[in-house]
């Protein structure tokens, strides 16, 4: 990301702070929700959903994925595909 103008970088710094507050807020939400009694599957879904949002925020802004080059995105899509496969398959062994 080198070669950015000063104004751009300063804009980004404001963005980072906003993302930071969003992450903090989501952390509070996820902890709070864990104390609410709900069916286990729903609980898992909600917690993972929030975690995915937080992870996307970190990846998109702190790791600059939102403006990253195609080659990196390509590598990550490939990885995520195999990752999903690895995650799901062992649990489906008996199906």
């Amino acid at each position: 990301m080198s070669g950015h103008s000063e104004v751009e970088v300063k804009k980004q710094v404001t963005l980072y702070l906003r993302v930071f507050f969003a992450l903090m807020a989501l952390t509070v939400v996820t902890v709070a929700i864990s104390y609410v009694h709900m069916p286990i599957l729903l609980g898992v879904a909600v917690a993972l959903f929030i975690a995915c949002i937080k992870a996307s925020l970190v990846a998109a802004f702190f790791m600059h994925l939102s403006t990253e080059k195609k080659i990196i995105i390509f590598i990550l899509i490939l990885t995520v595909f195999f990752f999903a496969f690895l995650l799901a398959t062992p649990s489906l062994h008996h199906t």
Partner: peptide, 10 residues
């Protein structure tokens, strides 16, 4: 971010 809910909350 994933470990926290997976291990501590669920």
């Amino acid at each position: 971010i994933f470990l926290f809910p997976a291990l501590y909350l669920l």
